[in-house]
Design a protein around this nucleic acid. Structure first.
Lengths: 202, 202
DNA sequence: TGACTTATGGCACACTGTGACAGAAAGGTT
DNA sequence: AACCTTTCTGTCACAGTGTGCCATAAGTCA
């Protein structure tokens, strides 16, 4: 990896970290791009070359999680029931989180605190989730051999799976440690699996 | 009702109708507030006195639906299982839709077409849905006698109910008639009810 | 070194959204 | 009718977001 790319990645993380701290200090809305750019000594114009906007900073994890889920899904045996697959994909995201560097773990926990404090960001998160839902629905529809535009069950399966994930991550305000998140997420998955009728997703 | 209020309501609907048509004609993003205001001959400033922004126009139905659901929920017997209640609340929204004036029905169908054509608006819709989910979770938590900040099952119940609603409304692209929407919605509710274990929500 | 590719900063611009203020319209009173 | 009060409206000013364009600076490679 050349100097150029290393420098870019460094700037990228510097922006992200500065932004997260500013958001937590003075709130999301009241933090301007100009302030973020100022904190890492770049021009506001350059900020937009790294991120599409303030929102993007909050959704980095969602981007990553979606990638992981699609990967995990592709790796599952084709005859595995769809909801089971999706739960495995959820666990894959969780596993990735646990194997993250301390820096990334800290970023994730900061993000979680941010979501707890700013309901608007939960909305943002949900909007991004809708996008992921569409992508997952494509894959699950293909697995089930149905047309994603016609089959409601496919969408219901994906929506339930995403709900499970969201509830595990967002819902009960926790003390903000990684193990706590792990527990909550596992609890949510167990709850969902126990709530559904066997074979409902076939 | 005085002249003043009648006039306001007229302007309100004029803005809404003009906006929906413009959105469908030239797309959501490429329609500016200035154009909408121009179409109904008001100043852009006045637009913001009727609606908080372009988004608000798309979310009027969601506002209404949330009100209906909260009302319906309050009217259900206190010992009814939570998910059953929520499904009844969903049906209440559907019933309201069916008893709507032809004008309102047309607005709703235009909105649906809009959502089909603009994925970003689906995200918007999901963000608004997250807000409704929080409100519903408060009510359901109270019903179940638990702390909404601690109980995951409450959030899962609400999330599943909202998923059911969303899938019924958004998912399979239909031909755009009111009876079609009714069928899809009923199908989605039936699907959800059949998928869950009896007593899972207690 | 010199020629190249790419990143950056500055500028102009369109759009959204809000506060402040002055004038117009509606409502009520005598 | 004339009057005052309340509410709505338009104009102006302003901060913030986000994008296209172009010159310049920094990195890459021969």
């Amino acid at each position: 990896m050349g100097l150029r790319e290393r420098k870019k990645e460094k700037t990228r993380l510097a922006i992200l970290d500065a932004a997260l701290d500013l958001f937590l200090e003075q709130g999301y809305e009241s933090t301007t791009i100009e302030q973020i750019a100022g904190a890492v000594e770049i021009s506001p114009r350059t900020f937009f070359r790294y991120f599409t906007g303030k929102d993007h900073l909050v959704l980095l994890f969602h981007d990553h999680a979606e990638d992981l889920m699609l990967e995990a899904l592709a790796a599952r045996p084709p005859d595995e029931p769809p909801f089971t697959c999706l739960m495995q994909a959820n666990r894959a995201v969780l596993a990735d989180l646990e194997s993250a560097t301390p820096e990334d773990a800290e970023r994730f926990l900061k993000l979680r605190r941010l979501l707890d404090e700013h309901p608007r960001l939960v909305g943002l998160s949900a909007a991004r989730g809708a996008q992921t839902e569409r992508h997952l629905a494509e894959v699950i529809a293909a697995r089930r051999g149905v047309d994603p535009d016609q089959d409601q069950l496919t969408h219901l399966i994906v929506a339930f799976a995403m709900s499970t994930m969201r509830v595990g991550f967002e819902c009960p305000r926790n003390d903000g440690t990684m193990t706590e998140v792990r527990q909550r997420m596992a609890e949510s998955i167990a709850l969902a699996e126990r709530s559904l009728r066997p074979g409902w997703d076939l």
